[in-house]
Design a protein around this nucleic acid. Structure first.
Lengths: 154, 154
DNA sequence: CTGACTGCAAATAGTTTGCATGACG
DNA sequence: CGTCATGCAAACTATTTGCAGTCAG
């Protein structure tokens, strides 16, 4: 079950934040996309409908959403300022296609064994982890041409 | 076994790159540190001895080293432009202390099972992964004060 | 109404590029 | 000696901040 723009809006309200058309537009853009989006990308997307929305507002909204844990960063490639809707209901990780940039997520993550082992070895008190897999998605495997047809890449 | 400045220098030479005093200084700074360093941090470190080294040179050297696979990025916190000496001899991952920023690494990583499972589930052809654990290192646990005594944090 | 939100513009930070000089091999 | 590397300055890009007007509640 995914988070919808409406649900996020409700969260915002319940936290005492206002639900403005701009924020709504940004929420729609983020929830509609399966990919990770940079601030600029979100801005462009949103601008199609709300021409005079400021990039600044996008930044501020992203910050807010990240703070509330509704979106999270994706670390694909060198780009570390891409954001993605979060699945709040469960722990999950990302699977990033190096061909087209699509992000899938998966939940079958059991690192607790490894976490314990590493913790024992190093003495660290581990409280979280970051795990991402990189590879080619089904359709990019068919195309199987490393260059060309890359949409997300800079 | 860690990579030393000397060894990296040898690699550079063998690849046809020149071994200049500036590069040497940068290599020493990187190999001497157990932490992840940002370009600016490297620059400052290096400057203590070589006052008129340019930040630009640091950037260019980092780029070169990353290209040769001698250093790698660390994705701790929001900062994604920190670099660390690589252990070229084996696959490993990072363990980042959220207290002081120290980076340890560990090698007991067996994700192949999970990789296969995820691959089967999603149809992705997985070729690499990024795994980092976050937590508190031994000495930060003793201090156990989440604020204060934080050196690496912005 | 009132304070939070927005948009603009300017400020700041981070990174890249062009070019003349200098040093490596 | 020729070429690659450096350092400076300027160009760019990405992000943050200040402020006055606007709008959600």
């Amino acid at each position: 079950m995914k988070l919808t723009a409406r649900k996020i809006g409700a969260v915002l309200k319940s936290r005492g934040y206002r639900l403005t058309p701009q924020r709504n537009a940004i929420l729609s853009a983020v929830t509609a996309s399966h990919d990770h989006l940079t601030p600029t990308a979100i801005h462009e997307k949103v601008r199609r409908e709300h021409k005079n929305i400021g990039l600044v507002t996008v930044y501020r909204t992203i910050e807010l959403l990240a703070e509330l844990g509704l979106i999270c960063e994706v670390h694909s490639g060198g780009n570390c300022h891409s954001y993605l809707l979060r699945r709040p209901d469960q722990h999950h990780h990302h699977l990033i296609c190096s061909g087209c940039g699509t992000v899938a997520d998966f939940t079958s993550c059991d690192l607790s064994d490894m976490e314990q082992k590493v913790s024992r070895q190093t003495g660290f008190d581990i409280n979280s982890h970051l795990l991402e897999f990189m590879g080619l998605c089904r359709s990019c495997q068919k195309d199987d041409r490393p260059e060309g047809s890359v949409s997300g890449a800079k």
